[in-house]
């Protein structure tokens, strides 16, 4: 990765982020949840990160701020991908939504909401997307057992079978 570009990302982002690292060649910003929207806006407007790639979360149970919400962006101008991470506590797992900046964030935030129960403030549509209405719990949390079943259509008993 180009040195001048890294320097520029570092300069623009310095006042907003807690940490700036390089992981396997990819710049990683660690920031407070409150700074997320502003960081994304500056990434998009000042550094050309016009493609919102992905949002997901990682569950670290036992940690004070249990959920790590992870974003990936791509800048076509710089040909660089960037990761932004923020931590939220289990009691209030809410971050700002990025739908005002990227249309594609809507669907991916819905998935993250499904799987981890992360709330996205400002996303008007957080209906289940991969799960169904009425599904209880968040399956990608580490405390959700892998073999728990919640069939929407009840299993037929022997007597009910034709």
């Amino acid at each position: 990765m180009r040195e001048d570009l890294l320097q520029r990302v570092r300069e623009v982002m310095a006042p907003l982020v807690e940490r700036f690292d390089l992981a396997h060649g990819m710049p990683v910003l660690t920031l407070a949840p409150g700074r997320l929207l502003e960081t994304a806006r500056r990434l998009k407007e000042e550094l050309g990160f016009d493609l919102f790639l992905d949002v997901t979360a990682v569950d670290w149970p036992g940690n004070e701020r249990r959920f790590e919400v992870v974003y990936h962006f791509y800048s076509a101008r710089q040909r660089v991908r960037l990761r932004a991470k923020t931590r939220v506590a289990e009691g209030e797992p809410v971050v700002d939504s990025l739908v005002s900046l990227y249309g594609s964030a809507g669907y991916m935030e819905r998935e993250c909401h499904d799987m981890f129960g992360i709330g996205f403030r400002g996303n008007p549509d957080l209906r289940p997307v991969l799960l169904y209405e009425g599904f209880v719990g968040h399956p990608l949390r580490k405390d959700y057992p892998k073999d728990r079943e919640q069939p929407l259509v009840p299993t037929r008993t022997r007597e009910e079978q034709p």
Binding site: Y132, E133, L152, E160
Partner: peptide, 11 residues
């Protein structure tokens, strides 16, 4: 089984 199945989606 009785009654209609619930819809998995909310339009």
């Amino acid at each position: 089984m009785s009654g209609p199945l619930p819809s998995p989606v909310r339009p």
